[in-house]
């Protein structure tokens, strides 16, 4: 397995896989596959993929430790960056399609809806992580400081989950948030247990 993970083509394949959900959404948007309320469907799908990306990012290290596939480590940053891209698309789709980039309406909405505030905070917290995702940034910061900064992911996961939970709480429709809570909780506990 490690041989495959270290193959030169593994990175492009991983990027391709990470891009697939976005490609399928573009396809759906172009060919009417987003249903009666395409804006709502797009915003929600991008949010779902952001959460899945967070879970995947958090899963890499426990999975590596569990299986001994050390080659997994080289994809951790790619998955993290892809998650940031989905989060940015998710927030931008909301700001554009729902709020039409009207700053006053945006600020009012963020103030009015706690789940929007929490989601926006989670996205903002991803910014420093994305900004330091380059090799040069790791060298410049030093490994320890870089790792400490990127531990922010352990907070962003639960905050993003709270955003989703709150959004669904209006209709008491909490099955999916509960599943994500189990996954994210489990992945964070795996670290704790290991340490």
């Amino acid at each position: 397995m490690n041989r495959w993970l270290l193959h030169p083509l593994a990175k492009p394949v991983v990027w391709l896989l990470l891009g697939l959900p976005a490609a399928s959404l573009v396809w759906a948007a172009l060919y009417g596959g987003l249903g009666p309320n395409p804006a709502e469907a797009l915003i929600r799908s991008l949010g779902d993929w952001t959460l899945r990306g967070l879970c995947l990012t958090l899963a890499i290290t426990p999975l590596r430790q569990l299986t001994g596939w050390s080659g997994l480590a080289r994809f951790r940053r790619n998955v993290g960056v892809a998650t940031f891209v989905y989060a940015t698309l998710h927030w931008s789709a909301y700001a554009w399609l729902d709020m039409e980039w009207a700053l006053d309406a945006l600020l009012k909405d963020i103030g009015k809806r706690p789940f929007i505030l929490v989601g926006t905070a989670a996205w903002l917290a991803l910014l420093p992580l994305a900004a330091t995702s380059f090799n040069a940034a790791v060298r410049w910061m030093g490994g320890r400081a870089w790792r400490d900064l990127h531990k922010l992911t352990y907070v962003i996961g639960p905050v993003a989950l709270l955003h989703f939970w709150w959004m669904r709480a209006g209709k008491n429709n909490l099955l999916e948030p509960a599943i994500y809570a189990l996954v994210i909780g489990g992945l964070l506990a795996a670290r704790r247990w290991r340490a």
């Binding site: 948007a29 009417g32 987003l34 009666p36 309320n37 395409p38 804006a39 709502e40 797009l42 399609l97 039409e100 309406a105 009012k108 909405d109 009015k112 809806r113 209006g170």
Partner: peptide, 24 residues
């Protein structure tokens, strides 16, 4: 009069020809 959790000033008409980019 807004809903306590969101604005009621505008609405999205379902099925507009401009699709995704239809203005509210």
């Amino acid at each position: 009069v807004d809903h306590p959790r969101w604005s009621q000033a505008s609405e999205r008409r379902i099925g507009e020809a401009q699709g995704l980019f239809a203005k509210k």
